[in-house]
């Protein structure tokens, strides 16, 4: 299986707290992180808070530029690619965020929210409109949802809107950062089912980032364990869970039950 999205030797650091504009010490967030996800595959990234998993997901989606290393999409280095190619590739990688409150602009209608990622794509307005309705149907939201505001929806429905926004560009990879962590048990189950359905229906790849081992175990084919900015263990989900090789993995397993 060839890699669809690949990260090679990613490093990232931030200025240490308390350092000034003049001369600053750096704190390492990620160190030599390499991973890949194949077509129709789910890679779970698990780690406790402060392990750097949020930063990693933002680097994978291009929101943050890594200090070292590169991101390859279908073998193509995004940094070397020219503007046009980048513009073409960008819609193929989408993201679902954690916070159901902060992920949707309260002053925009669902239609405006879901349409936003199509902004730079060369599509007619009719086509964009069609895509929006299609994405809403994909996540089983009623058509009349389009003209309502996020506050009129429950937490689970808001997360569906966020998923519809990620689907509207017909991406091949979706990075989900703690996408179900803030949801109730039943809503979590419904959203996880939806994500599994969508993967089958559209042949999606997921990079699923979470601190919750139970969620990662349920949805991932392969798992990478992130600890203090480094990947300490990676492999098929069940073999990592059943035969952890690293102390950090064992800690996470112990904590989850």
């Amino acid at each position: 299986m060839s890699a669809l999205l690949e990260a090679k030797n990613i490093a990232y650091s931030v200025p240490e707290r308390g350092s000034s504009v003049f001369g600053s010490r750096k704190k390492t967030v990620l160190q030599d992180v390499s991973l890949h996800v194949a077509e129709r595959e789910t890679l779970g990234i698990v780690g406790s808070s402060g392990s750097g998993k949020s930063t990693l997901s933002r680097i994978l989606t291009g929101l943050i530029r890594p200090e070292k290393g590169k991101i390859l999409f279908q073998g193509q280095d995004l940094r070397d690619a020219n503007r046009q190619v980048r513009k073409d590739i960008r819609p193929s990688i989408q993201m679902i965020f954690q916070d159901p409150q902060g992920a949707l602009d309260p002053r925009q209608t669902v239609r405006q929210i879901v349409k936003e990622p199509l902004h730079q794509m060369a599509l007619s307005n009719d086509e964009k409109e069609r895509r929006v309705l299609e994405a809403l149907a994909d996540v089983a939201l009623p058509q009349d949802a389009a003209d309502r505001y996020p506050r009129m929806f429950s937490g689970g429905q808001r997360q569906r809107i966020a998923i519809a926004r990620a689907l509207v560009t017909r991406p091949s990879v979706i990075v989900a950062d703690e996408a179900v962590s803030a949801l109730d048990v039943s809503t979590q189950a419904v959203v996880l089912n939806l994500l599994l359905d969508l993967q089958k229906r559209h042949g999606l790849s997921y990079i699923f980032v979470s601190h919750d081992l139970a969620v990662i175990r349920h949805i991932s084919h392969r798992v990478a364990v992130l600890d203090e900015g480094k990947i300490v263990e990676t492999g098929p989900t069940l073999s990592v869970m059943d035969h952890p090789q690293h102390a950090a993995t064992q800690d996470l397993i112990d904590a989850s039950l």
């Binding site: 933002r58 989408q94 902060g102 992920a103 002053r107």
Partner: peptide, 27 residues
């Protein structure tokens, strides 16, 4: 600016000025 819908807008290709006008000012 720290909220996720700002990140979503940046991913869609909007620059700082566009993000400010679309999302920050109305809110």
């Amino acid at each position: 600016l720290v909220l996720d819908y700002i990140s979503a807008a940046r991913m869609a290709g909007f620059g700082s000025v566009a993000v400010t006008i679309r999302h920050v000012l109305p809110n």
